[in-house]
Amino acid sequence: MTDDEVIHMEHVWTRFGENLVHRDISLSLGRGQILGVVGASGCGKTVLMREMIGLQTPTQGQVWLLGESLAEADARRKQQLRNRCGVLFQGGALFSALSVFDNIAFPLRELKTLDEELIARLVCMKLAMVGLGETDALLMPAELSGGMVKRAALARALIMEPEVLFLDEPTSGLDPVLGEEFVGLLGQLHRELGFTVVMVTHDLDTLSDLCTCVAVLAGQQLVSYGTLDDAIACAHPFARDFFHGKRAQRILGRSD
């Protein structure tokens, strides 16, 4: 393991009761990479991501986040590690009792050392970054459309200037135009801020446009881990169906 590794998993097994979700998964992700995790519905992609953040402990095996073992870190240490991560949950997970502005300001206010003016300016900057206006900032989460929820959640995930960004299905529930816009936004922010991204996605456009690294989960195992071309060359039936279906060929512009 080198200093450049942001996430490192060694022989991770996950079991929920009788149900085996992950069988011996090992991977490592370098700084600045964009990892896309694909797999069938219910194959444990989100669980894998939760294990990377330390929200869930694998049944067996070790996870290192930003060079630290999550199993060995104590609660305070884990908290510090999580402060360096931003997470975009699938449903946005905005606090429904707080306005968009307060949602984004929340992690900053929790630090208890920054003054309100600085917080307001930083929040506004992040709002502008994700393309939300000043009138949107005062809305409550229940009043937002799906695309705005994603944008507000992304702004909240970015507010702490994270080194690693975890995205759970960032484009699901968005129309194709909005989805494409969101992917463009992510790519631009990645270039500017240089964070590492782990995203769970079903979206081939996102994979081919953004990801520098693709992990394919199928049959409880990691059947492919490498570039998109590696994933396309993978012989596993799920990967074949996923990357060589009609839709995939149209998007990836290949035919076999």
Binding site: S99, F101, L127, A128, M129
Partner: peptide
Amino acid sequence: QSAFRRWQTGGIPAVRDGRR
């Protein structure tokens, strides 16, 4: 420079207070 460019270009909405 890019860190400053975002502040320079402006267009940042001026929400002073998050309250209605």
